[in-house]
Design a protein around this nucleic acid. Structure first.
Lengths: 256, 256
DNA sequence: GCACGCGTCCCACTGGGTGGAACCAGATGC
DNA sequence: GCATCTGGTTCCACCCAGTGGGACGCGTGC
């Protein structure tokens, strides 16, 4: 009954990962047994490791329930890539949201997904489709398509070749159509998305491209599908992305 | 040349902590040697552990430079306490910022500090004194005082008895004065702060108190010291805190 | 060229980590 | 009341993952 990982040479850190991984979006604390089950580890091991992790403050414990700890949140905020981008982008995002009144998102590409690292809520109170810290599939969002359009052709092929799953009836899953769309994005500078991620949301995004060091992320404006006119915001989004890139470049020399 | 921790029975997880702890606010990546130095661990050990942590994606590596990884950011966002509070508070914060036009912060208490978990930038573009993920001393901020006022008397004593350091000339460091102020806060429902944290910032905050389960955090409005009138926002801040508490309570039964 | 600093690899040693089983605590039920 | 169940902790003999000093290789600068 070993832990279920491809390569079964697992050290303490791998076990720890299994434990931390076990938590997801929306559970309110797990007990040791449940945790052991999800992590695929013996209860005694989990009990011991959890005790250590609680001492280290990566986990918190409230009676029998275990939670991810505040310390983890703090550490996460120190992560460089999101931190720098967020600092560069926040004022620009706020400005963009003031101009448009819509929800504004900032995300970083990670493999086949975009990780949302900041958000400013619009005036309308439209429930944002994406929350900070969550991932969205790269092919099914304006953010993702904007980013993907500026990836190396080989990478694009790799993403596109894989089976693209449809999140709504509108999601573009045809490789050819998607590639064509990416070409348009490269030309026009913005990517649009029409109910491809959430049946009630539309959006428009632009990539944040830093001259020396390439793609840093993407920024988007989105709102309720009924009354959202993407074309109206294109210029603003493009300008915002450019400003963010400039600010980012001015902070310090690109790394790598 | 052992790692410098009070109790020197250190396992892998403790070593890992030493490594992750080594990163701070504003460095742009560390080399193995520098990291080993800061962590107080042998270079070979650090090299090996870092390799593992990179595999686990807690760290990222870009040539010789090591960074905290995106995965850590994602995990951190899953931490329950900040997540729930943030979800409950964000729309309310946005609304509060629209009413006031000033920077709005949300924080959670942790021992002698307040950890900022969300922020909405004001209209004025005043540089916020506090960023998401950072800590501010509990006695030197509106957020902190609002929270502290609702802690158990024993806890208050514990905090107050310790030496309180002055961050500016205005920071309240006298225990007696502070206790008196806390009493006022309990009475009036809001805490004010006048250049006590940053010589150019003033603010006002209210505690988010959830009936069954006590203090969940604090919410504040702050702005440039010159033209900031705390009293004008008192009612709004109080109302916002109350709304957040209600939303939080409505999400699910209190834990613990 | 030589010396220096940085990162990785090697390898004999050992104690931190393991996990099944026993144990304990509280809740439920008849 | 006793039996039972579920969830968490502790025990302890076994052993392999992790250790770290030192050798090695690489790039850099004097």
């Amino acid at each position: 009954m070993r832990a279920e990982r491809g390569d079964d040479a697992l050290g303490v850190l791998d076990r720890m990962t299994c434990i931390l991984e076990a938590f997801d979006q929306d559970d309110r604390g797990l007990g040791i047994s449940e945790l052991a089950l999800r992590a695929g580890l013996p209860k005694s091991t989990v009990s011991r490791l959890v005790a250590t992790l609680v001492r280290q403050r990566y986990l918190e414990r409230d009676g029998r329930l275990i939670h991810l700890g505040l310390r983890l949140f703090e550490l996460g905020q120190l992560a460089e890539q999101p931190r720098e981008l967020r600092i560069a982008a926040l004022p620009v995002m706020t400005d963009l949201r003031n101009r448009t009144g819509e929800n504004v998102h900032l995300a970083i590409r990670d493999a086949r997904a975009m990780v949302c690292i900041a958000m400013v809520r619009g005036r309308g109170g439209a429930m944002p489709a994406v929350r900070t810290g969550t991932r969205v599939p790269i092919h099914a969002s304006a953010l993702g398509k904007a980013a993907l359009a500026h990836a190396a052709p080989a990478e694009v092929d790799e993403v596109v070749s894989e089976e693209l799953d449809a999140l709504t009836t509108e999601t573009v899953t045809d490789p050819v159509l998607l590639e064509r769309e990416l070409a348009d994005i490269r030309r026009g500078g913005t990517a649009v998305e029409d109910r491809e991620l959430d049946p009630d949301v539309r959006g428009i995004a632009a990539a944040v491209l830093v001259p020396g060091s390439g793609l840093a992320g993407a920024i988007s404006v989105s709102g309720r599908a009924e009354d959202f006119d993407a074309s109206r915001y294109a210029a603003d989004v493009r300008a915002a992305a450019k400003t963010v890139a400039q600010r980012l470049a001015s902070f310090g020399p690109a790394r790598g």
